[in-house]
Design a binder for these strands. Structure first.
Lengths: 134, 134
DNA sequence: AGCATCTATATGCATATAACATATAGAGGA
DNA sequence: TCCTCTATATGTTATATGCATATAGATGCT
C-alpha cells in the first residue's frame, strides 16, 4: 500500500487563497510513486488520493502530467494489452527520472523552508493554536 | 528590520522543476509584512527580498498583487504626496486582511504538510544527506 | 539646461497552468 | 440494450507568470 504513514488526509478549504495551487507538485509525487513500482495512470490516481492528495484528482491532470514527464524523459511507457479491461499504459521510471526526483527534492525542500519561515513569523505574531482546529 | 530570523537566503535553482512556482505565496507574505506596519510597494519589495524571497523581485508581481489584494478588500491604500521623491501609495492592512492572513496560514500549513510528506517519503527511500550540500 | 539615476507605480503581451467538462472505448453485468 | 467500471485522452476557458516596458517626480552631475 501507500507508504505515506505521516499523511492523515488533511481537510481544508482553499477559499480566500486563490491561485496558490501548487498543482505541479503532482509531478514529483508521481515520480516517487513510480520509483516504488511501475504503474499505469489509473492506479497512480488512486495511490495519489491515498497519499494526502486533495480529494478528487482530475484524470486530465494525471495523464497530461504523465505525458509531459515522458517528454522530459523521466518516465517511459508501454501499452499493456490483453488480460481484462481496456488497454493500459504502464509507466516506468527512467534513470533520468530518478535524477529528477533528487532535483525536485531540493526544490521542494527550498519551498518548504519558505512556507515554514512564513508560518514561524505568523505564529510569532499571533501565538495562537490554530493548528489544533483540525 | 525584518524579523525573518530563521531564513538564511536560500540559494537554489529550479531547473528541472518547471511550473512549480508558488508565486501567489507572495500575497500572504505581503499581508504579514503589512501587519507589521503599513508600507508602500517599493518598501515591500525590499523587505520581501530580505525575507528569503527569491533574488530579484519583479515589481510587476508586487504591484499587481497589491492591486488584487486591494480588490479583495484585504488592504487599503492612500496616496502619500509631498515630502520627497515621487508620490507613493501607502498600503494598510484591513480587518478583512487580518482574517485573510489566518486563512492563508491554514492553507500554507496544509501545503507544507504535503511537501513534508513528500520529503519524508523521499528520505525514507533514499536516506541520503543532500540537505548538507548547501 | 541637458542628462542620467534613483525612487515609485503601473501596464502589455506571449505563454504556461489550472479547472472543468467531455470524448473514446473495452469489459462485464442487469 | 443500457449502465457502470476501468482506462486514457483532449478541448475550452480563465487565470497566472515572466519579462519587458511605460510613466514620472526628485536628485545630482556636468
Amino acid at each position: 500500500m501507500c507508504k505515506c504513514h505521516n499523511v492523515h488526509h488533511f481537510h481544508h478549504s482553499k477559499e480566500g487563497c486563490p491561485g496558490f495551487r501548487m498543482e505541479k507538485f503532482i509531478q514529483p509525487c508521481m515520480l516517487l510513486l513510480l520509483y516504488e513500482r511501475p504503474a499505469h495512470g489509473y492506479e497512480l490516481m488512486e495511490r495519489l488520493q491515498r497519499c494526502g492528495f486533495s480529494g478528487n484528482i482530475d484524470p486530465g491532470v494525471v495523464y497530461r502530467n504523465l505525458r509531459k514527464m515522458e517528454e522530459e524523459g523521466w518516465i517511459r511507457s508501454e501499452w499493456e494489452s490483453g488480460e481484462s479491461g481496456p488497454a493500459r499504459r504502464r509507466y516506468t521510471l527512467t534513470p533520468e527520472g530518478e535524477e529528477a526526483i533528487h532535483g525536485w527534492a531540493v526544490h521542494v525542500r527550498y519551498q518548504m523552508e519558505r512556507l515554514k519561515a512564513f508560518l514561524d513569523k505568523y505564529e510569532e505574531f499571533f501565538r495562537n493554536d490554530e493548528g489544533k482546529e483540525d
